[in-house]
Nucleic acid binder design. Structure first.
Length: 940
RNA sequence: GGGGGUAUGGCGGAAUUGGCAGACGCACCAGCCUUAGGAGCUGGCGGGGGAAACCCCAUGGAGGUUCAAGUCCUCCUACCCCCACCA
């Protein structure tokens, strides 16, 4: 046997796969199809580092295995090739983005081929080529014709320094990602896609997907559906002006706690509602808001500022006048751009009310704890005693088993005054007597289960806030059963907040010590006819009452906004629209597509779209009348390109359609989709949106593009930090492969740990995989028959590897194969069994297994060989080792027949010498037998 | 502030879903082989005690349920990711 020289044989097999077109996908209606897809990369000029291919290796293993299963596999690769980095780099070095992209693509292909992936390279796509973006433009027109693409004036992120619009993702902490200068808002006429029309469908269909919960949660979050109500306030100014102002709230149950109405500074009504006397102040405030940067405006820890407008709004039910303010904590683009201020039940409103001295009225009584069945009713008090000189609160420590730290609490008789009751309890338990009452809470509805008395309780509690006037203490008067059960401690506010865990006491602490408003649901109070209702019920009833009086309505709002797709940049797909003086906005007729990028243009950003500078491009004839017209000069967001690319792979060279319908019907949807979690929202949401648009238009038969999604975990540098050029911890796969070969590299990436978990790279770790392959290289076969024990191990290994590949548990699949190889010494394997092992290893290490397969006398490729079946009977042992425990401690291990019954196992355990010794002088209380696992003899 | 996740030897990570914690690999240690070793082979390798048999402790922390807990429940801590003045 020659030495294992990975590089030599890897080149050999890669060349043969290419030459024989082994991985070219062909539709075959008689076979089950399987579409396994990687998120296509943006070909960066930096090339791939070792973190990138982990997902590609996983999909390659799955694809190779599924091909061997006899399935028809589509496993393509392509390039998300439009985008800013290539354009910026071109500007920097004075080249053209097209050339730079082509160079990067060539380098990516070289690197990917080095790793030995089984892509169908004949289906390679590139979003920056006219043959592709013709269909991106076609998609735009499809949306346009269905009323889903529209142009409107909108505020966008604008970088003053780079003179360009920036996508949201290019704005980092309110600054331009590239030049780090602050980003300002600018009003520009922009193209949007109406993704908001699909909000509910995008939300509902998530349930049907085999996606990580995390990604689904992020999408739900991004869509941000919130149910609530719009409420109309009738307003007036002292100058006799009148106006209608509608607010949006998710908490109509708190309507009776309104003490002001606030509108966003950008709200168009501000002009009308501002009283003459306040105009100066309001204008100054709006001006100040404009000067604020994104971060200053939207930081959650910013102080709540605002200005009174002089106007008042009438409460829709009580008719009371509440003041109207302008404040920048209200955002113009969400809801109606106006909110009702309920200081008692919203953190921001609370802070605002504190600053401007607004009334704080409790209209929702708190509910704490978990409601129980058939509770006993009680009354109680909870007293917070504060020592103002030391800023500490009085706590009673009952010990960890009795509820831990509490404030002072106690039961209250039906007619007892809460203050008197609290003073009595404080005196009895702590002895403090010189107290001043400074606050009393609303009724708190507390539910809990009293384990000591085995009874459920519903308690109406009153919280009281006392200040210590002096530390004069009387002697305590404890009941006999309370003596010595607790200690009295003074805790800092912060200590108390972490130590007091009982929900009732914690609420009282938060209310008095930290002045926190109650923002959860509860029981209505001070709300007229709605008193006593639970919040959820009250929301419905109050909304219904508003509707009946035509003063409001049920309303659903979404965080999701329409998708802004215009970009004032060169390196993207031109938007296929023409503007005619006579006929206005005109779509470019389909037969004129693609609208190609001009190559004679200076694409340096100056503020206007570079395409507008090309006369050849810009001056066209109106498609309708033929008179001179102007072409739209914006390009599309690159996320448009990637929203439909998975369809193009089905039929990448089609010139008359984005793909042949029969081919799309055959291959789609994608069965397994793999990529990084950074695309959790944007790309995956947009692709889902496009799929629904195409479904509605009858082009595809499925509503969701990606049935199963897996996210690869990030690979960190050896220092445990994210790999980056600036940190200097980037590892290049080229170097690793040059030293140990692609097979060792593939195995190591898969062996490192759980596929979806973050994990650091270790260059020394890869040697283990190289050693494993060296052992495989030296494995021998030729025995007439494999020994029974090894044969059984082989079949268990086949079973485990088969199941683990499907479940993306590649790390344990590899360790199982290592165990098999470690167990295998000398020429014990039959040729057939040896070859079966090579087959299950082949998706992981395709090159070495092709070589050994050939050396074993096979003429066909192992990549085309059938996946071995395992004999289920051989995966089950006839004997198993079980543990013998005495009271949970293992005393011995014995080997027993696998089908031994409980009685037999118990007998064997009782007869065991070590068990007998451990049972010496003890009485057996119970024997637990778990077949194939253990016998546990409980003895005292 | 909201949502999601993670925590197991020196390190990466296993653990049949409640049943023998530490599989597999790296690193390390000892021995063999070798002129040599960044090669190969054999053995060891969570901590503590003990000559040994064996005993005790141990899966971020504290409680709990159970014959049995890394796994289930309650509370807490630390770190990571995403979103965030969204009313």
């Amino acid at each position: 046997m020659p030495k294992y020289e990975p590089r030599e044989l890897e080149k050999k097999w890669q060349a043969r796969w290419d030459a024989e077109r082994v991985f070219a996908a062909k539709e075959d209606a008689s076979k089950e199809k399987c579409y396994i897809l990687d998120m296509f990369p943006y070909p960066s000029s930096n090339g791939l580092h070792v973190g990138h291919p982990i997902g590609y290796i996983a999909t390659d293993i799955l694809s190779r295995k599924r091909r061997m299963d006899g399935k028809c596999v589509l496993h393509p690769m392509g390039w998300d090739a439009f985008g800013l980095p290539a354009e910026n780099y071109a500007i920097k070095i004075g080249g053209h983005p097209h050339d730079i992209t082509q160079q990067s693509v060539a380098n990516y292909i070289r690197q990917l081929k080095l790793i030995g992936f089984s892509y169908d390279w004949e289906r390679e796509i590139n979003t920056s080529l006219p043959s592709y973006y013709k269909w991106t433009q076609w998609m735009f027109l499809l949306l346009y014709k269905n009323g889903l693409a529209y142009k409107k004036q909108a505020p966008v992120n604008w970088c003053e320094f780079d003179h360009t619009v920036l996508a949201n993702e290019q704005v980092v902490d309110g600054k331009c990602e590239r030049c780090k200068n602050p980003v300002v808002q600018k009003n520009l006429s922009q193209w949007f896609f109406k993704i908001t029309d699909f909000a509910d469908r995008l939300l509902e269909d998530l349930d049907s997907l085999e996606w990580p919960e995390k990604i689904k949660a992020m999408q739900r979050n991004w869509i941000g559906r919130s149910e609530g109500a719009e409420i109309d306030f009738r307003g007036h100014t002292p100058d006799g002006g009148e106006f209608d102002l509608t607010v949006f709230t998710t908490r109509p149950d708190t309507l009776f706690g309104v003490s002001a109405v606030v509108v966003a500074p950008e709200h168009p009504i501000v002009e009308r509602l501002t009283a003459e006397a306040e105009r100066g102040a309001v204008a100054a405030y709006i001006e100040a808001t404009k000067r604020k940067s994104e971060i200053e405006r939207t930081g959650t820890d910013q102080a709540k500022t605002g200005v009174f407008t002089g106007a008042y709004a009438k409460h829709p039910f009580t008719g009371e006048d509440v003041p109207v303010y302008v404040a920048d904590y209200v955002l113009p683009q969400y809801g109606t751009g106006a909110v009702m201020v309920v200081p008692a039940h919203d953190e921001r409103d609370h802070a605002f009310a504190k600053t401007y001295g607004l009334r704080i009225t409790t209209v929702v009584e708190p509910v704490t704890g978990t409601p129980q069945e058939n509770p006993e009713y009680r009354r109680s008090i909870v007293a917070l005693v504060e020592d103002p000189s030391s800023k500490k609160v009085l706590s009673i420590n009952w010990g960890s088993s009795m509820g831990g730290h509490l404030l002072v609490g106690g039961g209250r008789d039906e007619n007892e005054d809460p203050e008197a009751c609290a003073r009595r309890e404080i005196l009895e338990e702590t002895g403090y007597a010189d107290l001043e009452l400074v606050g009393m809470s609303e009724t708190i509805h507390h539910n809990y289960f009293a384990h000591s008395k085995n009874v459920a309780r519903a308690i109406d509690a009153i919280g009281l806030h006392f200040r210590l006037k002096s530390d004069r203490r009387a002697s305590t008067a404890l009941e006999a059963n309370e003596e010595g059960k607790f200690t009295v401690e003074w805790l800092s506010f912060e200590d108390a907040a972490t130590k007091v865990s009982d929900p009732l006491h914690a609420y009282v602490l938060q209310k008095f010590a930290f002045d926190r408003p109650y923002t959860d649901d509860g029981i209505l109070t001070g709300s007229g006819a709605f008193d006593g209702l639970a919040s959820a019920d009250a929301r419905k009833k109050i909304t219904a009452a508003l509707e009946a009086e035509k003063k409001g309505r049920k309303q659903v709002n979404y965080h999701l906004r329409d998708w802004l797709v215009s970009r004032q940049r060169y390196w993207g797909a031109p938007i296929p629209i023409v503007y005619c003086d006579e006929h206005g906005e005109q779509p470019v007729p389909e037969e004129q597509l693609p609208v190609t990028l001009p190559d004679d243009v200076d694409f340096r950003p100056t503020g206007e779209s570079p395409l507008a500078r090309s006369k050849k491009f810009h001056d066209v004839a109106c498609p309708k009348c033929g008179k001179p017209a102007k072409r739209e000069s914006d390009t599309m967001d690159t996320f448009v390109d990637s929203s439909w690319y998975f369809l193009r792979y089905c039929d990448p060279k089609n010139e008359s359609a984005f793909a042949d319908k029969a081919k799309v019907d055959y291959w789609c949807p994608v069965d397994t989709y793999v990529g990084g979690a950074e695309h959790a929202v944007l790309h995956l949401l947009y692709a889902r949106f496009f799929t629904k648009v195409l479904f509605d238009a009858g082009f595809v038969k499925f509503k969701e593009p990606f049935t199963r999604l897996k996210n690869q975990g990030l690979i960190l540098g050896e220092d445990g930090e994210k790999m980056s050029k600036s940190r200097g911890n980037v590892v290049n796969p080229d170097d690793v492969i040059a030293e140990h070969g692609a097979d060792a590299f593939r195995l190591y990436e898969m062996f490192m740990g759980d596929f979806e978990q973050v994990k650091p790279w270790s260059t020394s770790g890869i040697i283990g995989q190289r050693r494993f392959l060296e052992r495989v290289w030296k494995m021998q076969s030729g025995a007439a028959e494999t020994p029974a024990k090894l044969r059984s191990l082989l079949h268990k290994t086949i079973k485990k590897v088969t199941e683990d590949i499907e479940a993306f548990k590649f790390n344990t699949a590899i360790s199982t194969m290592m165990i098999f190889v470690n167990e295998n010494e000398g020429a014990q394997l039959s040729n057939a069994d040896y070859e079966a092992f090579l087959k299950i290893l082949s998706p992981f290490a395709p090159h070495i297994t092709e070589e050994l397969w050939e050396a074993s006398g096979q003429k066909e490729l192992i990549a085309l060989a059938p996946w071995p079946a395992y004999d289920a009977a051989l995966t089950v042992d006839s004997e198993v080792e079980i543990a013998l425990q005495v009271t949970g401690k293992v005393k011995d291990r014995i080997t027993v027949p696998v089908d031994a019954d409980d009685k037999e196992l118990e007998r064997l355990a009782m007869e065991n010498e070590k068990v007998k010794a451990a049972l010496e002088g003890k009485t057996v209380k119970q024997v637990i037998v778990v077949k194939k696992r253990l016998v546990n003899i409980v003895a005292v």
